[in-house]
């Protein structure tokens, strides 16, 4: 006679051991599944970078050979081509001028503002800046383009640097609020008692104490400016072409030169990737902060 379903059966001898074996098997399977999924995700997300580097090191005739050769003789020909055919160093210096200019200027106006917001709890200013940070930058571009044309700022470094403040100032102000809040109030009060004026408290106490935040913010705003495409596309020109626009123009007539495309992409992505790997421990907090808070 069978027991009705749900009635607990009397434990068989050895059931305990079997149960333990079953649990161990499940555990091994879960582990294996975990690493399998991790491997799949890593391959899926990293393949682009692998393919970029590998393609950039291949000769044109090897690039579209399938199945792709895993072992091949690497060549720097693609890199040499790009450096010879395009004014790469001119564009690199444009990118550096714009990014460094935009980050420096934004620090000068952004750090004091951020400090004042965190000390005097300027809530509505902070929220206005957050709101503007989320707006699509193209909405500023149409009027700015008209004004720039009138003022002759199109295709000038100054004009491009000013426009990049749209990216960097809200980012710096918003992220630094959090870092300034972490500066203990007692230290600042003590400095005031010792005769420091308020600017001195900011300059000598708050700024040095939030140096790690300033480093993260500098890197983040630099990357944002470095990567930006739409500003230079609209407000730039031959003289001020930065690297993102240069890549875009390169594509125009060389789209089938896979090796060249990969070499350009590698040269632009690798510095940022290396930077990210070096500072990743500090960057992670900033990236999430940059997104919300």
């Amino acid at each position: 006679m069978r027991a009705p379903a749900g009635t607990p059966r009397a434990p068989r001898p050895g059931a305990y051991l079997a149960d333990r074996r079953r649990r161990r098997a499940i555990k091994v399977a879960t582990e294996a599944g975990f690493y399998l999924l991790l491997g799949v995700l890593l391959i899926a997300f990293m393949f682009v970078f692998y393919w970029m580097v590998v393609t950039s090191l291949k000769l044109p005739r090897e690039v579209t050979v399938y199945p792709p050769a895993l072992v091949f003789e690497p060549t720097l020909m693609n890199y040499r081509n790009v450096l010879e055919k395009t004014p790469f160093f001119h564009q690199l210096s444009n990118s550096l001028i714009v990014a460094i200019g935009a980050v420096t200027l934004a620090m000068v106006v952004g750090l004091p503002a951020s400090y004042a917001i965190s000390r005097y709890r300027l809530k509505s200013l902070a929220l206005t800046i957050l709101m503007m940070r989320m707006m699509p930058t193209i909405v500023f571009m149409l009027p700015l383009f008209v004004v720039y044309q009138r003022l002759g700022l199109i295709d000038t470094h100054a004009g491009l640097i000013f426009s990049h403040l749209i990216l960097t100032v809200p980012l710096i102000v918003w992220i630094m609020i959090g870092f300034f809040e972490d500066v203990p109030g007692e230290v600042e009060d003590q400095a005031r008692v010792d005769g420091c004026r308020r600017w001195g408290v900011f300059w000598r106490i708050a700024l040095p104490l939030s140096a790690p935040g300033i480093v993260v913010t500098t890197i983040l705003s630099f990357i944002t400016s470095w990567n930006n495409f739409v500003f230079v596309l609209i407000l730039g020109g031959v003289r001020t072409t930065t690297l993102p626009l240069a890549v875009f123009n390169f594509m125009g007539f060389e789209m089938l030169d896979f090796g060249g495309v990969a070499a350009v992409a590698s040269m632009l992505s690798l510095p940022i990737i290396v930077l990210t790997i070096i500072v990743q421990r500090w960057l992670v907090g900033g990236l999430t902060l940059g997104a919300i808070k």
Binding site: M46, V247, V261, A262
Partner: peptide, 25 residues
């Protein structure tokens, strides 16, 4: 920690460059 850093890379690398490479793929 290494895996986390690798996973972050798509978000920091230059969008124009990444997009171009996707285009070849």
């Amino acid at each position: 920690a290494i895996v986390r850093t690798l996973f972050i890379l798509p978000m920091v690398s230059m969008p124009v460059a990444s997009a171009l490479l996707w285009g070849t793929m």
